[in-house]
Amino acid sequence: MKNIKNIILVNLVLGFLLLGSCSESSDTIKESQIDTSTPILSDLDIWLRSNFVAPYNIEISYLWGASDTDIARFLYPINENGVERWSETIRNAWIEPYNQLGGHDFIANITPRQLVYSGGFNYNPNSPTITLGVAEAGTRITFFNLDFLDYSNEENIRQPLRTLHHEYAHILNQKIPFSDDYGLITPGDYTAQWFNVSDQEALDLGFITPYASSQPGEDFVEIVANMLTNSKEGFDAIVSTASPTGQAYIRQKQEIVVAYFQENFAIDLYELQELTYQALLDSLD
């Protein structure tokens, strides 16, 4: 028994010596290893914080590197000279109209948390198409080709606003799905080859745009996007160029879309249309 005690004692002494020799290389945490210093803010950064982060909880991401996006695509950030005007445009033509009709915090409650501004085009590989915008998981919307905005041209500004309303309608759909009945109006004409469908062919088949013919989810948000970037008369004029059958289909879809907004968000889509389209006009030179 005495021998056992001696062995334990010797081992403990040896152990303390060895542990002591290890202690020099252990890493003691003295301060945070994460860079928590305040970033350098430009006047533009401060303006964005005051006008988007504080009131709407939306971050505008306009400074970024290749690794922040799809590295397989040749994308680049917006020229900073265009940031403020585009931000004002979307505030006036998207945020304020929704807040006015849906409630003061409508956008703050249901919103993408980050808007990413890309200057160049997003060309799709192996396809004769470009991606106008991307909505990811309801939290982030990326706009492309913002360096090429021409505020003297209504159609030129309509396009990215259409992208915004399109992507935001996806986010609303993610919060509250629309009725499956929508997809049953023109079930047989959805196609993955939508880019081979002309504008007129799409209208005649009952789709407001060729992209709407890609799948019901896109069809729904394309109705929203095109209503909110045109006047009522302008939208009706587009629909009137469709075949009688196509017009009937589009009107059926429009009814479901209008009811969706009224029943789920208490928003009169026609009233919203007036506000968003007027803001589009006001944004022009």
């Binding site: 590197g65 950030p77 917006i78 020229n79 900073e80 200057g119 360096d147």
Partner: peptide, 10 residues
């Protein structure tokens, strides 16, 4: 990283 769009880079 050239974080905002200088045309010389873009």
């Amino acid at each position: 990283v050239f974080t905002s769009g200088s045309r010389h880079i873009t």
